[in-house]
Amino acid sequence: MLEQILAHYQPFQPVVLLDPEIDRLLLMDFTDRNTSITPEILDNTDRFTAYVNQLLEDHDCTFGIGGYAEHRTIYARSEHFSTGEEPRRLHLGIDIWGPVNTYVFAPLDGTVHSFRFNDVHGDYGATIILQHQLEGHTFHTLYGHLSLKDLEGLQEGMRVAAGQLIAHFGDIPENGHWPPHLHFQIITDMEGNKGDYPGVCRYSEKAQYLANCPDPDLILQFMP
């Protein structure tokens, strides 16, 4: 039902500003099909950042994009995703890779549900979650890997307008130690979580998590 509502509720305000005449998007692959990502790159965030930046430069693209429902080997770089008998590898959001301090905007009206600095290697770092209402349905949007300054002055329940600047791409020390990017995710039921919700799940839990986290491109409208 939510997917149908989002598909017909257009246009949303852009989450990241793109000039169609200048800015190009590169579809990026972080599965085991991409053999150019070596353990040496993944084990060093500066090298990983240089790798992403070089890819964008080589393809003359402003932003990299992709990752929804992608089974990603890159999560082996952090113990955060490898607890328990089965590691977490299935990505539940869309990533937008680009320069530090890139502006992030609210795609539609809402309120601040929660926020937190998830300061663990491989986690979201600075995180904001908004709550929205559309046609009687409540859902949430999560913004991960932000700048710490974006959490200053926030309060739960604070109103946010469509198109309002809410955040910036965070730098490595504050974004969970990743190359700068935005993790954008739609979540129907927060299941009691605040300031955090899994952005990566175990493959055995794929069906239930994808049902609760529909394709973020319903809002972004980036993918062909």
Rank of each mutant, 00 (worst) to 15 (best):
L210V: 07
T127Q: 10
C201S: 13
P11A: 06
H91W: 01
D196P: 00
T35E: 10
E57L: 09
R72T: 03
H80M: 06
T111S: 12
L18M: 11
H168A: 02
H121F: 08
Q208E: 14
L142E: 12
M223F: 13
S204T: 13
L18G: 03
A211L: 13
E174I: 05
R202E: 09
G176A: 03
P87C: 07
N53Q: 15
G176T: 01
L165G: 00
I5S: 10
L108V: 03
T141Y: 04
I129A: 06
A7H: 11
N44F: 00
G144Q: 08
A211Q: 14
F117A: 10
V16N: 05
S147F: 01
L151H: 02
H113S: 09
C61L: 02
G136T: 10
P180R: 06
T138H: 12
V104Y: 01
P214W: 09
L108N: 10
H183N: 12
T141N: 10
K194F: 14
L25T: 04
I187A: 09
W178S: 05
D29F: 07
I74M: 11
T49L: 01
E70S: 13
A76Y: 00
A50Q: 14
Y143N: 04
L218E: 07
L142N: 05
A161H: 12
L25W: 04
Q185P: 09
G192P: 07
D171Q: 11
H168T: 08
Q10L: 14
T141F: 03
F184I: 07
Y68M: 06
F63P: 02
P20M: 08
N193P: 01
G84V: 12
M223K: 13
R116V: 00
N175Y: 10
H91M: 09
I22K: 15
L154F: 01
T73A: 11
P179R: 08
P107M: 11
E152G: 00
E70A: 14
I172T: 10
F222I: 14
I187T: 15
H177L: 14
F222K: 11
C213E: 02
G67V: 01
L17T: 11
E205P: 06
P39V: 08
H177G: 00
G163A: 04
G199Q: 08
C213F: 03
I172H: 04
Q54E: 13
K206G: 02
G84E: 08
L56D: 07
Y209W: 15
L151I: 06
L218H: 12
L55N: 12
C201R: 03
M1E: 13
Y143A: 04
R89A: 04
T83A: 10
D109R: 04
N44E: 11
E135K: 15
W178D: 04
F184M: 09
H177M: 13
L151Y: 04
Y203A: 09
Q133F: 12
E70H: 06
R47F: 04
Q133Y: 12
T102N: 00
I128H: 00
S78A: 15
R72G: 03
G157D: 07
F30T: 12
H183V: 13
R77P: 02
G125A: 03
Q10H: 15
E191L: 14
Q208H: 10
P173Q: 10
Q164L: 02
D171S: 14
